[in-house]
Amino acid sequence: MTPALEVRDLCRSFGALHVARNINLALAPGARQALIGPNGAGKTMLVNLITGALKPDSGAVFVRGEEITDLGQAARVKKGLARTYQINQLFRELTVLENIALSVAERRRRGANLLQPFSRNRETVDEAAQLIETLRLGDDMLKPIRELPYGRQRLVEIAITLGQRPEVLLLDEPAAGVPSTESHIILEALDALPDNIAILIIEHDMEVVFRFAEQVTVLVGGAVLVEGPPAAIAKDEGVRAVYLGEHEHG
């Protein structure tokens, strides 16, 4: 079967610093894969390289067998590739509703419509409202982002991306900064996604990784150290040494 996402021999360096060394990765449709690794391992950089925010020095990226390495960010999104950010990237002066509706409107290619009032896009607004429901943001729907606590903003961050209805979803530490009382909302929202979406999640919380992922990739120093099912990764000596070791030291 063609992988939903495939990364081949991806390399990128900033001067002497190699943030990606020959990375190979494949996600089947419906995959639930985790990407872990110590801070500075290059996880976020890998997401940037896949989505086109950063250009690779060499290597290629494919979505459903189609090469997208030379496409711009927006064009890749149209191929079904969407991401969330480790640090919120929101439209701070706009309301929660508008943040999410904007994403839905872009997906539905409404954004070029110059003369029709935004409120006429009833389906767009309904879909945004549905996402708001899913992420339990109803109470904050009409508040501008800047009035929300960070944890709530985090949910908006994810809702915006889900508004893209991606086929390949890249989540960069989605639960970071969300109070533990609310982090289940994110997991439930992810569980509710259609099964055929391929998801790559960057996550530090091993409990979440175990619960969510069927496959784990460990990235260290810009290179893939090992890949396998969570149970095997947890037992892996090399991973223990590098990754868990670093965690204990903070």
């Binding site: 989505t51 925010a53 711009g72 960010q73 927006a74 999104v77 149209k78 969407a82 991401r83 950010y85 990237q89 929101l90 439209f91 701070r92 002066e93 706009l94 904007l102 994403s103 872009e106 997906r107 954004g111 070029a112 915006i160 991306t161 508004g163 893209q164």
Partner: peptide, 14 residues
């Protein structure tokens, strides 16, 4: 205006 980067990431032809 608020976040050009995110607009790219939601597929907007900025």
């Amino acid at each position: 205006r608020e976040n050009t980067r995110r607009m790219h990431a939601i597929g907007s032809p900025v």
